[in-house]
Amino acid sequence: MALPLLPVSTLTMNARVTSFALADEEWSRQSQSAARSIAGTCDRRDLDIQIEQAYRQIFFHAFKVDRDPMLESQLRSGQITMRDFVRGLLLSQKFRDDFYRCNSNYRMVEQTIGRVLGRPVYGDQERIAYSILIAQRGLPSLVDALLDSEEYMQTFGNDTVPFQRSRVLPGQPVGTMPFNQQAPRYGAYWRDSIAKRAPAQSLTWQNSTMGQLPDWLANAPAPWARKLWLNTVAAGGFVITGLMLWIALSMLSTGGPG
């Protein structure tokens, strides 16, 4: 039997306080989406800007290979809303390969809440609650829980691109660090595990803290055997090349005048 989502008590943070700051880079994104909600439509240029913002919010970039033409077409034709577009990006193969499979459940909760709700997690209580949800029902259940939550609907609704809330704080010379700098794509433990499994030219086994070779070199031949094999292949290549040239010259010399 699946456990229900554990209750989470909210914390006092900037995302829960109404901002009295003047228009800035965050306000421009919110005003464009709000104008689209009121008018019911927007021109192609404004929609292109919102799509780019959605890619940057979820993927932190908008490379051509990572774009989803089907989702963009549905959004442009009005078949889906911006909230559905964000849902599609979060459930895409790109997000699974580059984020979901590179992080633990705890870190995945931090990554997804920062992208979808635009705020940090409410401490360990919220981190544990959503990590249990991921363990029981997978990533789609977390995405649905966040996009269908009352907080998301009141803050962004169906047509607003999610953004980091209250990053630029009035009265402070330096605002909150952008989320993509606070939470990189994967943590140090994933980087270290990849370094042990995959080849790396800069890997020095003498300085390895584990004191053992990585898995991909566990059954590798000795250095002298590899050197002997390379020399044998090189010598064989010269012999074959010489033999082919000798055959070609012999065929040309047999065609003398009759």
Rank of each mutant, 00 (worst) to 15 (best):
R83C: 03
R45Y: 09
E25C: 12
G88E: 01
Y100Q: 14
D97A: 10
A39I: 08
W27L: 11
G40S: 03
L47N: 10
F20Q: 12
T41Y: 11
S37K: 03
Q57R: 13
I80V: 14
I80A: 05
V86A: 08
F99Y: 14
R45C: 06
T41W: 09
T18S: 01
L75D: 05
Q79K: 10
I80N: 02
Q93R: 15
S73V: 08
R67S: 01
E52W: 06
R36K: 14
R44M: 10
A35Y: 03
D84Y: 02
E52R: 09
E26F: 10
A62D: 09
H61P: 05
S37C: 05
L47Q: 11
T12G: 11
L75P: 01
T18Q: 02
G88F: 00
A23T: 13
D66L: 06
F20T: 13
P69D: 03
Y100C: 10
I38M: 11
F59I: 00
R96A: 14
Q50S: 10
M70K: 15
S28V: 13
L47Y: 11
V86Q: 05
D68W: 12
L91M: 06
L91W: 06
K64M: 14
S73N: 14
M13F: 08
D24W: 10
Q50I: 07
D46L: 07
I58Q: 08
D97S: 12
I49Q: 13
R45V: 07
G88T: 01
G40Y: 02
Q30T: 15
D98K: 09
Y100L: 12
G78H: 10
A54R: 00
D84C: 03
S33K: 00
K94N: 10
I51Q: 00
R29C: 03
K94A: 10
A34G: 02
D43Y: 08
Q93M: 08
R96Y: 11
A54Q: 00
A35Q: 09
F85S: 05
Q57L: 04
G40F: 08
M82Y: 00
